[in-house]
Amino acid sequence: MFGISHPRRWQSEMDRLFEGMLGPQAPRWVQGGMVNNFPPLALWETPESYHVEAEIPGLTLEDIDIFVKDREVTISGRLQGVDSDQGTLHRGERPTGEFKREIRLPMPLDPDKVEAKLSHGVLTLDLPKVETAKGRRIAVKDGSASP
């Protein structure tokens, strides 16, 4: 054939790569059909809300289940992998399968006001705290000024 390396040589090259990168035989993150620690999350807080961001490429908002109750947020769904009839899989690093992340926040959330956005595979959740949980700044009166 034209400029194509010997299959066995290719095999050893691939093996070496996998050993260095991902361990000898765990190219995928899936264990027992469940993807571990997917999607990766970022979480931060403002006085009014919590904000969760997740890197979740390959899905649309319709593919992602978001469940908010009390202080808990659950993000779940399923990542479709590449079909084996599409050809020979030389690398399979992208996570596939069912995923579920649960986040427990310190304060209760208002589920009716939750907003979800998805842009270029990044999910953003704005999770407003319930009114009573927000806290209020208390103005301190100057007691010495009163008669």
Binding site: G81, G87, T88, R91, G92, R94, P95
Partner: peptide, 10 residues
């Protein structure tokens, strides 16, 4: 992360 699939040289 990448997936690489080959079919008949494509």
């Amino acid at each position: 992360h990448v997936d690489i699939i080959e079919k008949e040289g494509d």
